[in-house]
Design a protein around this nucleic acid. Structure first.
Lengths: 223, 223
DNA sequence: TCTTTACATTAAAATAACCTGAATTTCATA
DNA sequence: TATGAAATTCAGGTTATTTTAATGTAAAGA
């Protein structure tokens, strides 16, 4: 599922500029031209991150931020302020539970993107256990290694992801559809035979007995 | 080696007053009269602790603090804010990686010194091991040296930092994204090929077999 | 049995990721 | 501010990975 970002700015130029750059990175973008709209959209669309211009008509960025922090459904959202370089920092550093980051205009695309990415990454606390075990196979996500009876196997990216998926719930049958979505991504279009080929490669490496074909349904991992 | 403290304040009186008191305690003191200079000095002189006045021309204390927190070489430094008593505490509390302590003016020498001491003491106890070893390679952070079979290799800054990062968790795959963030800093935008080139330089020096490329993911250190 | 369906296999094509060396720019230091 | 070292960029080359496409096989249904 794509990461959703809400941008609120009254200047169309900036809105388009930021949208373009974020979309290019694969983010889903929604926009508002003032704080009040941003608030409504935030409640409705549940974005992962919100970019607020400080200066906006109807409701400015700070007021919007304050309101967002008060609503239960948006209070923990990541919020980034856009500020003119000239604006006094102390003015916006003022509140408790303020923004998670401040970006000054003029905005440089690469810098903007890297800040956004850094924030989203830091927020990701769902770092799950990095080691999965089943039978005599051990999968170490961090080291990107599969160990079979002490023997280290280095699988390339896609193979690793596919095995990781199957191993995330041993015994469960994963349909080709699900596999494509999880390993390749929702909007990546590849033929179904591609999966077969990867399964073959994995079987060659970890042994033929682990991954079982369930005709008409998909694949599962058993031990 | 004496503890080095950087003070940034636009008022000469205060600068002298604090310098005097710190020097009397045996600290080495360097000074700046605005945030921009402080930033430059911090990078160059590598002080152990930085005292920043909130109100300064060119770049104020908060802005300086933010920038310091973004540079890899200064991000973990101890930072103390000087604030006028009138200034509201909550005004400056907004930042994520804020200061380590706040001291209000007017400054009482004894109190000031004891706070500084306390901070330094706290920081010292958490000082990490300065030597990392793996295989026949030894990395001495303090001496900024890499020793391979007794032979001393002097790596330049970036190469050293990169190797240090990889060595901080041998086996773990570090993505280019993470490498850029940790070694170059979030906001420093350099091309991805830059990493490759540094990796090659390191390999040329420590040998080809330690750093492993994991295609599509990044690099890891193995031995 | 013949046909259909679903998956397997293989080699080759396409792509993405990385390496390399040279040129250029930046930086620290005298 | 001149100098050499370090850092960065760039473009062409190389390799590993991914994907396709053509063909094979086995099992289920007509």
């Amino acid at each position: 599922m794509a990461v959703k970002i809400l941008i609120a700015d009254d200047e169309e130029d900036i809105l388009q500029f930021l949208s373009y750059n974020l979309k290019k990175e694969g983010y889903e973008v929604i926009t508002a031209t003032n704080g009040a709209d941003a608030l409504k959209l935030a409640k409705k669309e549940n974005p992962d991150l919100i970019v607020l211009d400080i200066m906006m008509p109807v409701m400015d960025g700070m007021e919007t931020c304050k309101e967002l922090r008060e609503l239960p459904e948006t209070k923990d959202k990541l919020i980034v302020f856009l500020t003119a370089r000239s604006e006094d920092y102390s003015q916006i550093a003022g509140f408790e539970n303020g923004a998670d980051d401040y970006i000054t205009k003029p905005i440089k695309p690469k810098l903007f993107i890297s800040r956004i990415k850094a924030l989203l990454r830091r927020a990701q606390t769902t770092e799950t256990n990095t080691i999965i075990e089943f039978g005599n196979i051990k999968i170490d996500k961090e080291k990107h290694q599969v160990i079979k009876n002490g023997e280290v196997l280095e699988l390339p990216k896609k193979e690793f992801m596919l095995l990781e998926l199957l191993a995330s719930k041993p015994g469960k049958v994963f349909s080709r559809e699900i596999i494509l979505e999880k390993v390749w991504g929702e909007d990546v279009i590849v033929g179904e035979r591609t999966i077969d080929v990867h399964i073959r490669k994995i079987r060659e490496k970890i042994g033929e007995d682990y991954i079982k074909t369930v005709k008409g349904l998909g694949y599962k991992l058993e031990y």
